[in-house]
Nucleic acid binder design. Structure first.
Lengths: 156, 156
DNA sequence: GTGATTCTGGATATCTAGTGTCTAGAAATC
DNA sequence: GATTTCTAGACACTAGATATCCAGAATCAC
């Protein structure tokens, strides 16, 4: 899993605490990330409908929907793409006693087992929203939202 | 997930149908895989204790244990390594109001959520053995074991 | 309108991990 | 002793991830 996922998760959490758009540079300074590259990930989130962007001064990125409506799976899929972790290359089609017309991504017992496991993973991720994580964080660190807002104001 | 996982899974299934050691070349011919590279994966499975190898004529690879005792997770971990899919780089440690002494792989709510999801995935894989898959295959294709043995004998 | 800020998209460079080959050597068989 | 096969390491190639840069468009402040 690429590092962009971690960046995107934390970016979405921070944006959930902020009302005004935040530019890439500010978000990057927040965690000392490479600004131009982070911007690419944020663009990807925009294309996925998770963020919205506005150009110009006082522009930047905001959450496109309520944090309750953004699951961790949404973010992972946006950054990593919709492909499965395990890719079945249908090597069975080269095996003995097999026919060319079969889609082994469906019929191969390994492909099915791997897909079942992945579904369990995706189900967990789909069941956890940015709002859930935010509640977890605020439970342990009630000062986190204020800290974040203060730091953002400071960097502006 | 690398290609080697698919190869390793099918190799283990086929070896579960065979009593005598099978050399790399035969296994590679089976699915038209690059022999030298497949051999590397098989060596990895040997180091993980999943296969045993014997040198010399009539040598090759065999399952080291009963197929009931080899889970899909065993094979995945052997090939891919024990690292988690989501690597927490603890970018929070650069954030505001945070201290250097904290292990964010434990305390970051995202790291925990991602790990929980991965545990669900691993649980599924750990619960499915090569024997289970073999039973699935034989249920749909009772001729599979005989086909495999015939093809192996032919290639020998 | 002009200039400054910021996003967008594409081109490009670099680094890393996965893929693959090759060879010398060790182990086992015949 | 000759052959087969695994082992281990060196090496090359490729694809994807990481990262930078720039020209252009959108927006805002003045």
């Amino acid at each position: 899993m690429s590092r962009g996922v971690e960046w995107a998760l934390h970016a979405c959490l921070n944006l959930s605490w902020l009302d005004d758009p935040v530019p890439t540079g500010t978000l990057a300074a927040f965690y000392e990330l490479p600004s131009a590259y982070l911007n690419k990930q944020l663009q990807t989130l925009v294309r996925a409908g998770i963020l919205t962007s506005t150009s110009g001064p006082r522009g930047g990125f905001r959450l496109a929907r309520a944090p309750e409506a953004v699951s961790l799976l949404d973010i992972v899929v946006a950054i990593e793409g919709p492909e499965e972790l395990f890719r079945c290359d249908q090597i069975l089609s080269k095996g003995p006693g097999e026919h060319a017309g079969v889609d082994y991504r469906q019929s191969c017992a390994f492909a099915r087992a791997m897909r079942d496991a992945e579904l369990a993973w995706r189900r967990e991720l789909a069941g956890k929203s940015v709002a859930d994580v935010r509640a977890d964080v605020e439970h342990g660190h009630p000062e986190a939202p204020a800290n974040t807002r203060a730091r953002i104001a400071e960097l502006r």
